[in-house]
């Protein structure tokens, strides 16, 4: 599903965030991307979602080299990827239902269908009944789950999450990870960047450890 082949990423500042990263993630895998702060975890996710482009090397997502995707085609490409952010990136002045519906509205899904799928997604993250609330009226964990509902509502085959449990207490973090595990069980490919090693230890999943812009370790392989 995802293939990095000798990928380099140098930011305009001159900082080399990735220096020859290679790995492969198969369809339906649940993969944790770990490593110290500044190791390049977020950079990898940005390259997958085409928020950034590699300086060198080849990134392949869903059998497509991202180098062949023109700027005009990026929106359509991104509709195939669900993204969860550490800071949620929710629209705070819109109700929860509108936030979750956004990918469907963008994809031009008919109204009646949208309502149905939004409720299904909120049900999956245990937030049914909060449709009319504003995100600011929810707890941090609930907001994170709204972000997850938005990421999965359009049923993308690939889900990427950057520090999805970053500012949650340990119990809540485990709960969110279990949620991801459930999506992975139904065949969604999932990549989660996190520096929380203890949390990762509790799950039986593939792990790619980054260090200084390189793959330092990979388990299991």
């Amino acid at each position: 599903m995802i293939h990095f082949d000798q990928v380099y990423k140098r930011y305009p500042s001159g900082r080399e965030a990735l220096a020859g990263v290679s790995f492969r993630i198969e369809r339906g895998d649940l993969t944790f991307l770990t490593g110290h702060s500044g190791a390049g975890k977020s950079s990898i996710l940005k390259l997958i979602a085409l928020i950034e482009r590699p300086t060198r090397g080849r990134v392949t997502v869903a059998d497509r080299s991202t180098a062949t995707i023109r700027p005009r085609a990026i929106p359509l490409f991104r509709r195939g990827i669900g993204v969860v952010f550490q800071d949620n990136k929710l629209l705070v002045d819109r109700p929860v239902a509108d936030n979750v519906a956004l990918p469907l509205i963008i994809a031009g899904v008919p109204r009646k269908e949208i309502d149905k799928r939004v409720r299904a997604a909120l049900d999956q993250v245990g937030l049914l009944g909060k449709e009319r609330n504003r995100p600011t009226e929810l707890s941090a964990g609930e907001q994170q789950r709204v972000g997850i509902a938005r990421a999965v509502v359009a049923k993308p085959p690939l889900l990427i999450a950057d520090e999805p449990t970053g500012n949650l207490d340990p119990d809540l973090a485990v709960e969110i990870m279990r949620l991801f595990k459930r999506f992975s069980d139904v065949g969604v490919t999932i990549v989660i960047a996190t520096h929380d090693v203890h949390l990762v230890d509790r799950f039986d999943a593939r792990r790619i450890v980054l260090g200084d812009g390189r793959v330092a370790a990979e388990t299991p392989r």
């Binding site: 979602a49 929106p75 359509l76 990136k89 629209l91 956004l102 990918p103 994809a107 938005r150």
Partner: peptide, 16 residues
């Protein structure tokens, strides 16, 4: 700006 960024992240075209 933030709202537009989010929309683009979840696949909105410039036109949308």
């Amino acid at each position: 700006r933030a709202e537009i960024e989010v929309m683009k992240l979840v696949g909105a075209s410039d036109g949308f």
